[in-house]
Design a protein around this nucleic acid. Sequence first.
DNA 1: CAGGTCGCTGAGAGGGCGCTGAGAGCGGTT
DNA 2: AACCGCTCTCAGCGCCCTCTCAGCGACCTG
Lengths: 225, 225
Amino acid sequence: MRVLMVEDEERLAETVRRGLSDAGFVVEVVHNGEDGLWAASEHNYDVIVLDIMLPRVNGYKVLEQLRERGVWTPVLMLTAKDGEYDQTDAFDLGADDYLTKPFSFLVLVARLRALIRRGGPERPVVLVAGDLTLDPARRRVERAGREVTLTPREYGLLEFLMRHRGDTVSKGEILESVWDPAFDGDPNVVEVYIRYLRLKLDAPFGRRAIETVRGMGYRLDPDGG
Amino acid sequence: MRVLMVEDEERLAETVRRGLSDAGFVVEVVHNGEDGLWAASEHNYDVIVLDIMLPRVNGYKVLEQLRERGVWTPVLMLTAKDGEYDQTDAFDLGADDYLTKPFSFLVLVARLRALIRRGGPERPVVLVAGDLTLDPARRRVERAGREVTLTPREYGLLEFLMRHRGDTVSKGEILESVWDPAFDGDPNVVEVYIRYLRLKLDAPFGRRAIETVRGMGYRLDPDGG
DNA sequence: CAGGTCGCTGAGAGGGCGCTGAGAGCGGTT
DNA sequence: AACCGCTCTCAGCGCCCTCTCAGCGACCTG
């Protein structure tokens, strides 16, 4: 689990960094708002710990900016008891939780875990063609509900065909997209791998999903065969 | 909304019961830990208010027992300012919120509402994959009911795999999330740690939870092997 | 029907990938 | 200082994946 910590007090930052590392988190620390903004936009963290009192850009503004840029990583704000900003402001701005300094380290860990637990990522689209499904996120292929295991190359080829489901794609296009664009070997590889796919996808199910269009290329049947 | 209140101080309990009733909650009160445990296991409440200082079984143990029995009703703990237990303990045990006595009644209501709001469609606190369970709050891993002790790195890796249970995750993703994003060592570490996990998780149980997807990465079997 | 083109197929060589055992480095503990 | 647990590196090995190749069959054209 990846944590971004934006905290200018170096001693505190270092202490917390160590503790979180020991707790199994991967921690990145930056010491001002500008760096925090950049890091949070550029990388993917599971949660962000954001001090509200920061040099250059304050935590307040960092959070505002992040949300404006469409970064919805959960944020836990650190507020000073006597600061000019209080809890209310943090929540209003879209912080997902806050802690008042000084805070218990174990409480911090517990809250971070809770935040990560809540913020589940959404599942991307699944490609479908008849009884054939391919889940890019899971790198998983099923036919008629049964999982089919594919090698990387086979998988790449099938994904390409499914993304162009119904279209006739030439061997040249396939070679360019699935193999290296600069591939200069025998174009027969495509035929060979089409065969591999047919052996795994069609043969056990008695149906033919991948059609040959002689002289043109191949086409994945929209109805899955 | 149904609230179970476990509180031995009768006057306090009665005051709060009335207030919550007026606020539209359905309240059940028990006065010791044993009864609380039984009631919480037997009935379905939307939220539980649990005093930490209780006769017979203390709140501490009640919560522990509940979670072990798979009861994941949100719990708000009541702690005494000067008690031997503090906030830290409550969170560590999996309490979802706490209040320090004496507390404002309005704050209590607000927190309960917040807990109920969160607690409904919330994911369970424990990660499960077949007979494999991982409790992030307690940093505890079990397989087939037997506890398995893991080093921090092993734990981090397993937690990551379980949070992506069913997905195929590449070694690169693993390195970024479980190791440091700037890690530039030998990616073979991942293989090594996968092996460590297999030795501890699979070998003694004769089943394989972590699958290798050659050329792509690893996948934790949703059915736990 | 003959000839040519295109795709299919089975076999096999080579290399890359993941697995494994051993061990060094390091921080913490006794 | 000695020990221990954890992390990470390294090198060897075996297997799977990838790609090539050559022969064969299918289809089209004259």
